[in-house]
Structure formats: structure tokens, C-alpha cells
């Protein structure tokens, strides 16, 4: 499994349920796009820093997580300054910085499992609209999470093997075998999923179940 960016903790944000956190984030982020006053945006940025810090994460850790975003923001701020003006650049950097900090505070305090539950709740309405099959969508996500480390390892193994054969750094030498293996593997995975009784049957049509064989009971039988 891939390690989530969430960190264990018991801060107020950790204790808050996922849904209100996400709703709060969405409302705040949207509202910030209607704010142009640099003083208000600076306040929002300071608030973002406070909220992110309140999760128990140190500024150094937060900085490491958001390094990519910070760099992109710096480049864009610079471009804004040169192409538009300093005031706009400041507003954009403060606004996006504040949103990134708040969003990351939610990410840091919400486990993948909690977020998955919210996502599953969203699948319901989407299913009623005929957009997706909720059970299949959830299984697809789970399966992707399960197979990421396996396929990352496979990609690394292929690169090492190619390097040993002097094909170092060839995109073709990596991508072709990786994709062929994945396609073949996906067939076996699908067979296994079918063999294990997927898709689930409706409870009403379930036939009587065979009794479970319990080791304790068997151990008592002479």
C-alpha cells in the first residue's frame, strides 16, 4: 500500500469528521477567490499557517510536503509580477498559499479510510444518476491502491534488468514490457475476482449457507 500523507494525531482537526472538514475547505477556498484585499488575504494565509501547525505537524514537515506546490507558486508569482503587477502577484500567492495550507491540513488529519467513506457516499447519488456502479467503482479504487506498490516494484525491476543489458534509460525498454505484463496480469486478476464471487449477489436471492468449519469444534471431535 502507498503511505498516505495523513499523520496520526489527536488535534481538533484530527477529531473532526471528514465530511465537515471537506465542506469547510470547499467553502473557504471558493470564498477566497472573491477576496482581493491583500490585508484580508494575508490574514487568510496566516490562518492557513496556524491551522496547518495546529495539526501537530512542524513547519519543516509541512514545507517538505508542499515543496512542489511552493515552487510552482513562486514561479507563478514571479510571472504575475512581471506580466501584470506586484499587487496581483501578492494576492495570487497569498490566496493560493492559504488554500494549499488549509487543504493540506485536511489531508494531514484525515485517513485514507475516512476519505474513502466520503467518496463511497458520493458514489450513491452518482449511481442513481446512472453514472457509475458504486460497488465496482469502490473495488476499482481498492484494487488500484493494492497494485500500485506491486507495479512500481515491477517497473523498477524492469529498469534494473534493462540496465544490466546496457539499455539504460530507454523509455521503450521500460514501457513495453511493463504494459504487456500488466495487461496479462489484469486478466488473471479479473478471473480471480470472478472466482471469488464478484459481483455481490442481492441478499434476497442468497441461497442457504454451508456451515463454517471451525477449528475449535474440529479439535474436540475424536
Amino acid at each position: 500500500m502507498i503511505a498516505s500523507l495523513a499523520r496520526p494525531g489527536s488535534s481538533p482537526l484530527h477529531r473532526l469528521a471528514a465530511a465537515p472538514k471537506l465542506a469547510g475547505l470547499a467553502i473557504t477556498a471558493t470564498a477566497l477567490f472573491f477576496v482581493d484585499d491583500p490585508r484580508l488575504l494575508a490574514t487568510a494565509f496566516a490562518l492557513g499557517l496556524t491551522v496547518a501547525r495546529s495539526t501537530g505537524a512542524h513547519f519543516a514537515e509541512i514545507g517538505r510536503d508542499l515543496a512542489g506546490a511552493a515552487m510552482a507558486l513562486a514561479v507563478l508569482g514571479l510571472a504575475d509580477w512581471l506580466l501584470v503587477d506586484g499587487a496581483t502577484a501578492l494576492a495570487v500567492v497569498l490566496r493560493l498559499g492559504a488554500i494549499a495550507l488549509l487543504a493540506h491540513a485536511v489531508t494531514m488529519t484525515t485517513t485514507t479510510a475516512e476519505l474513502f467513506e466520503v467518496l463511497e457516499r458520493l458514489f450513491g447519488p452518482a449511481e442513481r444518476l446512472g453514472l457509475i456502479d458504486a460497488g465496482r467503482a469502490a473495488l476499482t479504487l481498492t484494487l488500484a491502491i493494492r497494485f500500485v506498490p506491486l507495479i512500481v516494484e515491477e517497473a523498477q525491476a524492469i529498469r534494473e534488468a534493462q540496465a544490466a543489458r546496457g539499455l539504460d534509460g530507454s523509455v521503450l525498454a521500460l514501457a513495453v514490457p511493463l504494459l504487456v505484463r500488466v495487461i496479462v496480469r489484469s486478466e488473471a486478476v479479473a478471473d480471480a475476482i470472478d472466482a471469488r464471487g464478484f459481483p455481490p449477489e442481492r441478499a434476497a436471492t442468497a441461497p442457504p449457507r454451508p456451515p463454517a468449519i471451525r477449528p475449535e469444534i474440529e479439535a474436540d471431535t475424536p
Binding site: M1, L139, T142, I145, R146, L150, A188, D191, A192, R196
Partner: peptide, 10 residues
């Protein structure tokens, strides 16, 4: 290959 049969991460 058990890797193909196990669908959940845990």
C-alpha cells in the same frame, strides 16, 4: 500467483 488473487491491501 497469489498476487493476482488478493484484491485488498490488508
Amino acid at each position: 500467483d497469489p498476487d493476482n488473487q488478493i484484491v485488498f491491501p490488508v
